[in-house]
Design a protein around this nucleic acid. Structure first.
Lengths: 195, 195, 195, 195
DNA sequence: AATGAATGAGACTTCATTCAT
DNA sequence: TATGAATGAAGTCTCATTCAT
């Protein structure tokens, strides 16, 4: 049945994802992936053209999921009238994403820093561009609605802030007092933005 | 002469550094390093026990340089009396470091995200721990002096912010309006911290 | 129905033949064959024990067809009295075969040059030996009837000549002025043989 | 010393040549080549970028040798005045080449029949084109000097004849009465050409 | 101090073949 | 009869590392 096949595909995908995220793309071999998925090496190649395609499929899937989350967020935000509250919700959303999808972001960041690997993902990123552009614009609009003097810089600022927290979470793990930092972030950011 | 030897060592170190930073650790081979350093592979192994030791030596050197910079910064900061001004100078220092040592930080981040590689660097990090701990404490003191309610969270916050900007610089390159973001960072941060 | 089954078998056989001839035996996979035949891989293995057996069956079929052609030729030649005319008709026959069955001969030649593959076809060639031997004898007789001093050498000579032209056709394709070469062959050969 | 290195290279080249010629390109693995050359697999890749480059280098070397032989032949022929004698010497030369370089020609023919492999050799053939063109022209001139009505067809004819004999030698091995066929070829050809 | 030839483990990938359904 | 998921052996190639010179 198609279901069996889907399960196998998912098993491979999941195994690869976890290994890529925890060991890195290069330090994970197809053998390890197959072994973890309890599948032969050859079978993995029945489902995915190459190791890089496997990575691509993982990213695509997670990007799409993540974008769907964003769309739900936008729906929710559209029902809020206070701009500051909108931003607060958005920030909450981000922090939430980071903590729940930590593995994914760890993988994603490590790829961003590996030009050779990244090059092969160009087509995927190109394909997703329309949707990422829209997200960028929607963020931009949120800040403009808040009355920011320089919404573009603001967007990069918050993006960097978020990514930085992500990085701290990933690298320092449990050492970081996440809840307190989150409070700080909300307090400060909202406060500032209301200036 | 010892000087010749020192030069050779440095040539290898520099070549490896540049290649690691731009291509990643895994995508750089000892052959490439030797070639760029205009040296034989064998000779590189006379100076560095293994590829990983070579990486370790690069990091150690750069960490030491960076720590020396920090010490100079602390000296300068001790002559300032206004706590907010102290923090401003520290932030300026960070941003400066990031932009001038971009290559190093790119490498460092990518390593942070590759546990497998990182594991081999444990001894080095252990060795440097006393000094990094001291830096952490000194930052902590700066925030306490500023009257922060939660200096520890504050420290992580600013650290994340800095790292996030770093990440943006590295990954988005010229697209990011760095100067405007820097202004924003200073404005906002100082303003907030004075609350 | 048996007819359906026959059709399926033929579709597989034809697809394999075309692919083997144009891409070579090694560079053709069972997957490609099955795909071209619009059949599952498993089904192909229901009809043919192995890739090599499939090749064997192709060759056998074509050899048998080719031998039947030869038999018809012999019938026609037996009605001719002039020995030289007999040879002329035979040569015409060969050239015709070559140009119409080019794909087959391309495949056959490439196999002749791959001992490893050829080895597995030994049983087939052994099985066909009686008929090929008879053809050889009949050629031999034709030359003897023409009064050749050394019919055996003559037979090899004409065989080589034919195969050589075949090779030229296959490898040089349209560059070779086939019609003029054919004229030359007939002229010269007949002329010489009449000496 | 460079000599050692040259020897190793030659050992690999020779081993590969023999295996390619007797087993075919595809049925020869780099492992086999390395083993026959008494060398590690890795070392073979120090000398030759890929299996296909190895093949390319073999062909190039043999082509160049063969062309040098042709040049020597032309020198010798230029001292002969009788056109028929010139052609006779040329034919002798060809037959000689075929029997002494049988392995090479077996390999070459099998490649001619494998489009996929051949495709990768395009650059090499392109590079050698000026010299092969010159040889073609010189052959052409020989026939014109003999007063042939259609030198172009004649050239293809003799070329095919030669290749056909080659094919017979390769595939039928010792069964072919080579010396008698050679006599026949010379007799007939010279006779005909003098018509 | 310096070379680079040599090794060998291990990575990615392909493909003929089998088998449960 | 028919499918295609699954296997595993084998192939090409890379690269950190060693060692004779």
């Amino acid at each position: 049945m198609a279901k069996d096949s889907e399960n196998t595909r998912k098993k491979i995908l999941d195994s690869a994802f976890e290994l890529f995220a925890t060991q890195g793309f290069h330090d994970t071999s197809m053998s390890q992936i197959a072994q973890k998925a309890e599948v032969s090496k050859g079978l993995a190649y029945n489902y995915f053209t190459s190791k890089e395609h496997l990575l691509g499929d993982i990213l695509e899937q997670t990007f799409l999921d993540s974008m769907a989350s964003w769309d739900r967020l936008m729906g929710k935000i559209s029902t809020i009238s206070d701009p500051a509250e909108k931003v607060r919700v958005m920030i909450d959303f981000y922090i939430d994403q980071l903590t729940t999808n930590q593995n994914f972001y760890r993988l994603y960041l490590s790829l961003l820093l590996q030009p050779q690997v990244l090059a092969n993902l160009k087509p995927l990123l190109e394909k997703l561009k329309p949707r990422t552009d829209r997200i960028q614009e929607e963020s931009y609009d949120l800040f403009r609605a808040m009355g920011s003097k320089d919404p573009e810089a603001e967007m990069w600022f918050i993006k960097s802030l978020i990514n930085g927290v992500l990085l701290s979470i990933i690298t320092a793990g449990d050492m970081i007092p996440l809840e307190r930092v989150r409070q700080l972030l909300l307090e400060k950011y909202i406060a500032v933005s209301q200036n």
